[in-house]
Amino acid sequence: MVVGSMILKVKVVNTGFAKGSLLISQQPISFFGGVDPSTGVIVEKNHPLEGVNLCRRILAVPSSKGSTVGSYVIYSLAKRGVAPSGIILGQEDSIISSGAILAGIPVVIADTRRILSSFKNGETIILDAKRGRILRFTGKA
């Protein structure tokens, strides 16, 4: 069984459960044009995370930007097994939410500042979007 210390209560958009390494993007992401749909690598020029792969990460992002077609790109990433395994949004965002719903990726909404102050980029966390909480992973019991 996976154990963790309870850290944050969050609002659930799409239910599910994911464990993975946290990737914090302080800038919005444009999935259409900004992410390679076959690999999951961020390709937007001059984006702070340019070159970083979203594959199986838990992505914390303030919101999306750009084309509404971004939803389809999230679906496509999931079909190829290179999508993020969970998404923490800073605010409601219908492009990411509907894409993640198509793709079956858990999504929650949390205060971006609290994510930044509670977790480190790259640490393993548990996104429990069944009960609406994020936990710090502390090992297996």
Partner: peptide, 16 residues
């Protein structure tokens, strides 16, 4: 419905 043009939705939209 919008999101019909292939130039707009690309392979991802076509697939879906």
């Amino acid at each position: 419905l919008s999101g019909i043009s292939y130039l707009n939705i690309g392979d991802a939209g076509l697939e879906f």
